[in-house]
Amino acid sequence: MPWMLPEDRFNDCGWGCAYRSLQTLVSWFQRQQYTRKPIPSHREAQQILVKLGDKARDFIGSQNWIGAIELSYILDEYLGVTSKILTVNRGSDIPSHARELAAHFKSQGTPVMIGGGVLAYTLLGVAFDDTTGECAFLILDPHYTGGEDLKKIQGGTWVGWKKPGDSAAAGGPLFVRDAFYNFLCPQCPKAV
């Protein structure tokens, strides 16, 4: 059974991972009471990109991938949330940015969308040891293809701590050694 939201039974298997990450980010802003806007559907996200002129009209209803840059446009337009983007040229270099990513969680707390290689993930936290330089990443993997089995989802495979060199839940390396990655780091709105 492909991954589907329980409330809409929408099949996005093979192309929807970044959209799922977007929905996780918007959900976080809801739970922190920054917004009451609903979580956008894939189609609504596509409509925003067309409205902004980033995509042609035939993008709406397609199964085309989006990445961190598109998510930044959507978050800005939909929620008024700006984002910083950390670009890492090689997956093997990601551990050297663990300190910077850990600082994001201390200062902002927002989940981070990871786009690159051929998959998207959502980063929920970073463990970084200043003394040894060892690090681990709390990854929410939107590629889960099963029923609503929380034990299976939360059992460390689909949501869990991953160290450099670990495999992704869907198989293969978590970070492809020679692929580039964009880390979309949404910024919390400033209180007025």
Rank of each mutant, 00 (worst) to 15 (best):
P189T: 12
A18G: 15
T132S: 15
G171L: 06
G80H: 09
H97S: 05
W28Y: 15
Q33E: 15
G115P: 00
P189L: 03
P189N: 14
L150R: 05
P40Q: 03
Q23M: 07
C17T: 07
V176E: 11
A18R: 02
D76C: 06
I153V: 12
G155M: 10
M113S: 13
G16E: 03
K106Q: 14
V192Y: 08
T24G: 08
V81M: 05
W158H: 01
D166E: 15
H143D: 11
Y73K: 14
V88Q: 05
S72C: 12
G61I: 03
A169T: 02
G14K: 10
G91W: 07
W65A: 07
V192N: 11
G67V: 00
W3F: 15
A179G: 10
E148K: 04
E148T: 07
C13S: 13
A120G: 06
N64C: 00
A56R: 12
D166R: 14
T122C: 08
G91N: 04
Y121N: 06
W15F: 14
H42E: 08
P6I: 09
G133S: 10
I66Q: 02
K151D: 15
G16R: 02
T157Q: 10
M4Q: 11
I94C: 07
A179T: 08
P164L: 05
E148R: 09
A170S: 13
F183L: 01
L25N: 08
V118C: 07
W65E: 09
K163A: 02
W65P: 04
L52Y: 01
I69F: 07
A45P: 01
N64L: 00
T122H: 04
D93E: 14
Q47W: 00
D12H: 14
D130Y: 03
Y34G: 05
G116H: 08
G109T: 05
G160Y: 14
Y78M: 06
T122N: 03
M4N: 08
I60W: 01
A68F: 05
T157H: 03
E100L: 12
P173R: 00
T82V: 09
L150I: 06
P111W: 00
F183G: 00
P164W: 00
E148G: 02
P38Q: 12
A127Q: 12
K190A: 13
F29H: 06
F10S: 09
A191S: 13
P6T: 05
S107P: 00
L49I: 06
Q33L: 14
P142G: 11
I66R: 03
D76Y: 10
P38G: 08
I153Q: 09
A169D: 01
K162F: 07
F29A: 08
Q108N: 12
A168T: 07
R9W: 15
S83D: 05
Q47L: 14
F183T: 01
T145D: 11
Q33Y: 10
R43L: 12
L52V: 07
K163E: 04
D129I: 09
I85S: 05
G171Q: 05
R20V: 01
W65V: 02
A170P: 00
A56L: 07
P142L: 09
I39C: 01
V126A: 08
W15Y: 14
I48K: 02
D149F: 04
Y78W: 04
A191R: 11
C185I: 11
A18L: 10
I39R: 01
I66M: 14
C188D: 01
R90S: 06
L138H: 15
L150M: 12
